[in-house]
């Protein structure tokens, strides 16, 4: 930066340099905004188009010459009504909610316990285990769904959403444990020493000190877990098929598409409602969401 010095002659020169710098900066800023708007349009086209289509009448959607990007004939909530009244959408919603809540609870209990133990207490092999957890996080669901299909079938859980409660933790537990290890290790050692001296046992240390102090991390992990289970697609696509067991992602994509006629207005209304819970959580807890996202590569 240009330094504004005390003497008068250099100050004149400095301000001139500063002026051109400011002009340069303003140009850079304007250009930044221009390009950001272009990228934002690209990123927001699909959600925008979802909303527009879901509010159009069937006639307008089918009409070829009307502008698909605009609502030119007013809007209607007809599609939302059909979706909720005449389809199994609410069943999918309920199934997804049950599965997600169960998976979040299981994941958080398992990973907080494990992260506390791995990050703080150490035992024989704990270092290797922590590395192993990170590696299992990198194993994708598309590598596991075929053997898991066999296993789920063997357990008699094929075409039951409870199978999702069983298999989704493979998507959530490793990452949540990994980021919780990071959060727990960042808590100063003095805290647990103080608790030790007061005679707290390990469980009390966890519930009274570590969980309250690492609450931001726990919220971030919970949000991650929620969005992953809400959006999971490979496992339900492979393991579920009847309408009363489907979850939102698969139900909307496969089951709402009836016969040969795509009811795009209703499909988009369904996609919109199905995407709403993660979007709402994101809107309110964005900072936690982002903290969880970036923690995987920086902590541990």
């Amino acid at each position: 930066m240009t330094a504004v010095t005390a003497t008068s002659v250099p100050r004149v020169r400095a301000s001139r340099v500063q002026g051109s710098l400011q002009r340069g900066r303003r140009w850079a800023l304007v250009l930044s905004y221009v390009f950001l708007v272009i990228f934002a349009v690209f990123f927001l086209i699909p959600p925008y188009y979802m909303i527009v289509t879901s509010l159009k009448s069937n006639a307008e959607v089918a009409h070829l010459s009307s502008n698909p990007w605009l609502l030119s004939q007013g809007f209607t909530f007809e599609h939302f009504r059909t979706l909720l009244k005449e389809t199994d959408f609410l069943i999918y919603f309920k199934n997804t909610a049950i599965v997600t809540v169960c998976v979040v609870v299981i994941t958080m209990v398992v990973s907080v316990l494990a992260a506390f133990s791995l990050g703080r207490m150490k035992f024989w092999g704990s270092g290797i285990l922590a590395t192993g957890i990170f590696l299992t996080y990198l194993v994708p669901d598309t590598l596991l769904f075929i053997p898991l299909f066999q296993i789920v079938r063997g357990l008699g859980l094929l075409n039951s959403y409870w199978a999702m409660v069983l298999v989704y933790p493979t998507l959530t537990v490793p990452f949540c444990t990994w980021i919780m290890i990071g959060y727990f290790s960042s808590i100063p050692k003095e805290l647990d020493e103080a608790a030790m001296i007061d005679g707290a046992n390990h469980m009390q240390m966890l519930t009274r000190i570590f969980i309250p102090v690492a609450l931001p991390g726990i919220i971030a992990a919970t949000i991650f877990c929620f969005t992953v289970s809400w959006a999971a697609f490979v496992y339900p696509m492979a393991f579920l098929y009847s309408s009363d067991q489907l979850v939102l992602t698969v139900g909307t994509v496969t089951s709402l598409i009836r016969a040969d006629v795509y009811q795009w207005g209703m499909l988009m209304a369904g996609a919109l409602l199905a995407a709403a819970p993660p979007l709402i959580i994101y809107a309110f807890l964005m900072d936690y969401y982002i903290a969880g996202l970036t923690a995987g590569a920086t902590k541990g």
Partner: peptide, 10 residues
């Protein structure tokens, strides 16, 4: 943030 299956539908 939008579940990928749903945005892919749109």
């Amino acid at each position: 943030v939008i579940p990928l299956a749903l945005s892919t539908l749109s």
